[in-house]
Amino acid sequence: MTAETGSLHSASLRSGRRRQRSALVVAGLMAITAFLWSTPFLWTLVASFRPETAGGIGMASLLPDYIPTLDNFRNAFESGDFAVYYVNTAIVAFGILAVQIVTISLAGYAFARLSFPGRETIFYVFLLQLMLVPPILIVPNLRTIVDLGLYGSLAGVMAPYFASAFGTFLMRQTFRQIPRDFEEAAVIDGAHWGQALWHVLLPMAKPGLIAFSLVSLMAHWNEFLWPLMVLNEPRTHTLTIGLATFALSTEGGREWGLLAAGTLLVMAPLLLLFAIFQRQFVNSFMFAGLKG
C-alpha cells in the first residue's frame, strides 16, 4: 500500500472506499459474464415459445418479439411420451445413485480407515475406471449385459455405473477428514464397525454424499449413447433418447423451436432441483473440501 502515513482512521476509510469500488467492478464484470454464460439458455427459452420454428430471420433474436405459443411444447409432447421418459430417466439416475452410495461408502471406508496389503495399488486400479473411454466399452459391456439377461432393461443401463471410482475417491477423502476420535469413541462404547460407519461416519460425510449425488445425477440424467445401445422399446426410453428423435436428423432441416422446447423439458427437473437446493449443493461441495 501507499508509503505515506496518514491517520489510521483515514487510511482504513480510503481502503474501504476502494474496496467498495472494486466490489462494484467485480459485480459488473460478473453481470456481463452471467449474461454471456446464460445467452444459450435465454435463446432456448425465447425460441421455445416462438411461433416460427424452423428458420426465418427472427429465429436468432433474443427478444421475445412475438405472441408466445405453446405449439413447440405441444409438438414435443406429441413426438414422444414424455411422462414415460421422465419416469424412466428418474429410475435410471436415482437407481444408479442409490446403489452407488452403498458401494462407494463401503469402499471409501475401506480405503480411508482400514489398512491391508496392496491398498495403494488397488486404489489406483480403482481409478482406472475414470480413464476408460465410453465408446470402446460399448461392445464388450453390451455383451456382459446380455449375458446377465439385462439387455433392453433399465437395470442394464444402470449396472455398469453401480461402482464409481470418482465416488470412492470422494468418500475416501471425506472419511479421512473426519477425526478418528469420533468412531473410536463409538467402537470403545462397543459399536461394531458397521454401526460406526452408519451412525458416525456417514452422517458426518453427508456433505460429501450430497456433492457426489449432484455430480452423479447430472451425468446419468443426461447420458445418451449407452442407454440408446441398451434400450429396445419406446416404453423404456429415457429423456435424451426422446429428445434425439427430433434433435438429430441427418437429412433435411431442423425445427429449432421444437428442439428448444425439448431441451427445456429435459433440463427442467435438474434446473428446478438445483434452483431449490442450490445453497445445500454448493455448501456441501464446500464442506466436502473441509479438512478436519
Partner: peptide, 10 residues
C-alpha cells in the same frame, strides 16, 4: 445440411 436449409428458409 441443416445449416443450409435454415439459411434457405430465412
Amino acid at each position: 445440411g441443416p445449416a443450409l436449409s435454415t439459411t434457405f428458409l430465412a
